[in-house]
Amino acid sequence: MPDEQPLPQPRIRKCGAPEVHQRLLQDPEYQARRLEIEQHLTRFLYFGLENARPGVTEIPVAVHVVYSTPDGNISDAQVASQMDVLNKDFRATNPDIIKVPAVWTNLASDTRIQFALATTDPKGAPTSGITRTSTKTSSFSTNDDVKSAARGGADAWPTDRYLNIWVCQLGGGLLGYAQFPGGPAASDGVVILHSAFGTVGTATAPFDLGRTTTHEVGHWLNLIHIWGDRLDCSGNDDVADTPPAQRPNYGKPVFPHVSCSNGPNGDMFVNYMDYVDDDAMVMFTQGQAARMAAALDGPRSAMGRTVVANPEV
Score class of each variant (00 low, 15 high):
2 P>L: 14
6 P>R: 00
6 P>L: 00
13 R>A: 08
17 A>G: 08
21 H>P: 11
23 R>V: 10
24 L>Y: 06
29 E>M: 11
35 L>P: 15
37 I>D: 11
39 Q>A: 15
40 H>R: 07
44 F>C: 00
50 E>S: 15
52 A>C: 09
54 P>E: 12
54 P>F: 11
56 V>W: 07
56 V>K: 08
58 E>L: 08
59 I>F: 14
66 V>H: 05
69 T>F: 06
71 D>C: 04
71 D>Y: 04
72 G>L: 05
76 D>F: 03
77 A>W: 02
80 A>T: 08
80 A>G: 09
82 Q>E: 13
85 V>C: 15
87 N>L: 12
89 D>C: 14
89 D>H: 14
91 R>A: 08
93 T>I: 04
96 D>Y: 08
104 W>Q: 15
108 A>C: 03
109 S>F: 06
111 T>M: 04
111 T>D: 05
117 L>C: 09
118 A>N: 15
121 D>P: 14
124 G>E: 09
124 G>C: 09
133 T>V: 10
133 T>W: 07
134 S>I: 13
136 K>Q: 14
138 S>H: 11
142 T>G: 12
142 T>Y: 11
143 N>M: 11
147 K>N: 09
149 A>D: 09
153 G>Q: 02
156 A>F: 07
159 T>Y: 02
163 L>T: 07
163 L>V: 07
166 W>S: 01
167 V>T: 06
169 Q>K: 02
171 G>T: 00
174 L>T: 00
176 G>V: 02
181 P>F: 00
181 P>C: 00
185 A>I: 10
187 S>L: 12
188 D>M: 09
189 G>Q: 01
190 V>Y: 09
193 L>K: 06
203 A>E: 04
204 T>F: 02
207 F>M: 07
214 T>C: 14
214 T>A: 13
226 I>E: 02
227 W>T: 03
232 D>Q: 09
233 C>V: 08
234 S>F: 04
236 N>L: 00
237 D>Q: 00
249 N>H: 12
250 Y>D: 03
252 K>C: 13
253 P>Q: 07
260 C>L: 01
261 S>E: 15
271 N>L: 02
271 N>V: 01
275 Y>L: 04
277 D>S: 15
279 D>P: 10
283 M>V: 06
287 G>L: 04
288 Q>S: 06
288 Q>D: 04
289 A>V: 01
292 M>L: 01
294 A>K: 00
297 D>A: 12
299 P>R: 02
312 E>D: 13
